[in-house]
């Protein structure tokens, strides 16, 4: 019991004193997850909106596939990306395995379907509301998508936050493709896994506090966004 308390106290000091390792790892985590988030959003927001607006033959199948992809276990994604990037794999020549880039790729694959699915859901509702008016006004397809993206921007932010939450807390895929190399690919979650197995609870807990802090912030933002959405202050 005392061991845990000592760990908590030490962790607290690491955070308060802005321990160099802790800062380094946190910044790398943010770098990887935010980069993945930006890339995923660039793909998922317009694609999810497009899926809501456009009727085509395989729409249902596309949505079913999307939902299936959303449920992909991260370790499996990690494994597949690993195989693709490994020296004998099709992209082996790029030498990306065990780099932050590999981790970003894995995270993009994990969060894009999630963001796209939330986007699609929200945009479908908005489109149902706007449909008649936008058709009546002779809007082009591009104008429709732009209108939905703009007027649904709060929902999109919520989708992005969900994606970020998933990315920053994810460990299964990035530990496989990143390798958890000190100073290179070690991020919050992989470091916690490692320090815990080594029995160094101080650093593990300190990193844990940071991670929890980030998650709380994301949840708080999501909550306040949905509040403003509901009260109609957009």
């Amino acid at each position: 019991m005392t061991e845990i308390w000592d760990g908590v106290r030490a962790a607290f000091w690491l955070v308060v004193q802005l321990d160099a390792d802790l800062i380094d790892i946190t910044l790398r985590s943010l770098h990887v997850s935010l980069t993945a988030l930006v890339i995923a959003c660039v793909i998922a927001l317009p694609a999810g909106t497009w899926l809501a607006v456009r009727r085509f033959r395989f729409r249902r199948a596309a949505i079913a596939t999307l939902n299936a992809f959303m449920g992909l276990p991260p370790v499996v994604v990690g494994l597949i990306v690993y195989l693709l990037l490994s020296r004998n794999g099709p992209f082996g020549v790029l030498g990306l395995l065990f780099t932050p880039t590999a981790m970003i790729i894995a995270q993009v694959i994990i969060i894009t379907p999630l963001i796209m699915s939330i986007t699609h859901q929200a945009m479908r509702e908005l489109w149902a509301e706007y449909h008649d008016l936008l058709i009546s006004l002779n809007t082009t397809r591009t104008q429709r998508i732009r209108t939905l993206l703009w007027d649904g921007r709060r929902a999109l932010l919520t989708a992005a936050l969900a994606g970020f939450g998933r990315a920053i807390g994810e460990v299964g895929a990035i530990i496989i493709v990143g390798g958890n190399i000190d100073q290179v690919t070690r991020v919050l979650t992989t470091a916690i896994a490692l320090e815990t197995s080594k029995g160094d609870f101080a650093l593990a807990l300190g990193l844990g506090f940071v991670l929890i802090g980030l998650s709380l912030m994301v949840n708080y933002l999501t909550h306040s966004l949905s509040q403003t959405e509901r009260s109609g202050r957009w």
Partner: peptide
């Protein structure tokens, strides 16, 4: 031509 719907849509703007 323009059309005003039975229950008009207000854009969220």
């Amino acid at each position: 031509q323009s059309y005003v719907f039975q229950s008009p849509t207000m854009l969220r703007r």
